[in-house]
Computed example of a mutant assay.
Amino acid sequence: MTSWFHFLTKDLPEGLGTVINVVLSIIVILLIAKVVIWIGQKLIRKFFVHRSKGPFRMEERKYQTLLSVTLNIWRVAVYFLAVASILDVLGLTVTTQSLLATAGIGGIAVGIGAQSVFKDLLAGIFLIFEDQIAIGDWVELDGAVGTVDHIGLRTTRIKGFRGELNIIPNGSITRVINYSRDNILAVVDLVVSNEANINAALSLMKEGSEKYAQHNELLVEKPEVIGVTDISPAGTTLRVICKVLPLKHWVVERELRREIKNLFAQHGVPLAESAMVIPMQKG
C-alpha cells in the first residue's frame, strides 16, 4: 500500500495512521483529478474555438458534437487513471496492472460484468465518427423523436417537441432517422366532398400552390399537384407535394393548406364532412 502521508501519521497508532493515510491519499487523488479535468477542458475548448475561426472551419452542429465528445473522453480517461491510482493506494496495484496488461480496458469492462456499458461505448464511437447525427439535428432514434441535445460515449439525449428528455443508451440504438441532413418533402392532403367538382378542385389546388410558391425561399422545387390519392365514402383525397428546406415541411404544410382551403371556400368547393354512424339496435 502506498504511504503518501507517512510523515504525518508516523507518530499515530499503526491502524489509525494507515486509515488516515488512505483517506488523505484518496482525497488528494480526487482533487488532482478535478483540477486536471478542469484544465484539460479549458484547453480543449480553447483549441476548438481556435479551429472554428480558422480557414478549415466546420459546421456549428458538428463543432458542438465533437467538442462534447472530446470533453467526455477526457473526463472518462482522467477518472479511469484516478480509479487506478486509488486502487494502488488500497494495495491493489498487482491486480490493476495484470488486468491492464492481459485484457486491456475492454477486458476490465467484461471482467466486472459491464458488457452492456462496453457495448454502449462502442456503439457511441461508431455513432459519432460515422457522423450519423450531430447536436441540433432533428432525429428519430428507436421511437424517440426530437432534437439531439447531447451525444456521449454511452448515452444520447433527445429533447422532444414538448420538452421531454429521452436518454437512450447508444448500444440500444438500432435505427437512426435524421431529418436535418437533406431537403424534405412537404405533403398536403385535402379531403373534398364526393359531390365536389374534382377537376375544378385540382385546378384551384394548383393555382393556390403556385401562388404560395412565388418568392418563397423555403421551397426548393415548385409544388406538384399529384391528384386524387384516395376515394372513400367520407370523401375524395387530393394531394399536392413540394420539396422544401430541411425541417421546414411543417411550416410549408400549414401555410399551403390554409392557402388552398381559402381558395376552396371562395369558389364553393365543399370539403368532406366527417360523419359518425351510430348503429341502431333491433327491438
Rank of each mutant, 00 (worst) to 15 (best):
K53D: 11
G111T: 09
K42C: 01
R175L: 07
N183L: 00
R157S: 02
C242T: 15
N194H: 07
A123Q: 08
Q214Y: 06
G268Y: 09
E195G: 12
S274K: 14
I133V: 14
A123P: 09
E210K: 15
I278K: 06
L90G: 02
L81P: 03
I135N: 00
I167M: 05
W4D: 06
R157Y: 00
I226A: 06
T174N: 12
I32F: 09
G160D: 13
L271P: 11
T96M: 05
G136M: 01
V187I: 12
W250D: 06
T9G: 06
R61V: 05
A275E: 11
E140Q: 07
I260C: 13
A33H: 04
C242Y: 05
G208A: 14
D120A: 09
S172L: 12
P223T: 14
I167S: 05
A275M: 12
E14A: 11
V252A: 02
I177Y: 06
A101G: 02
G152W: 02
N262I: 15
V251P: 02
T102I: 08
I158F: 03
G171N: 10
Q132A: 07
V94C: 00
T93Y: 00
L263P: 15
V251I: 12
M280G: 10
N183W: 01
G146C: 07
L67H: 00
S209F: 14
L81K: 05
V110M: 08
V187N: 03
D137F: 00
I226Y: 05
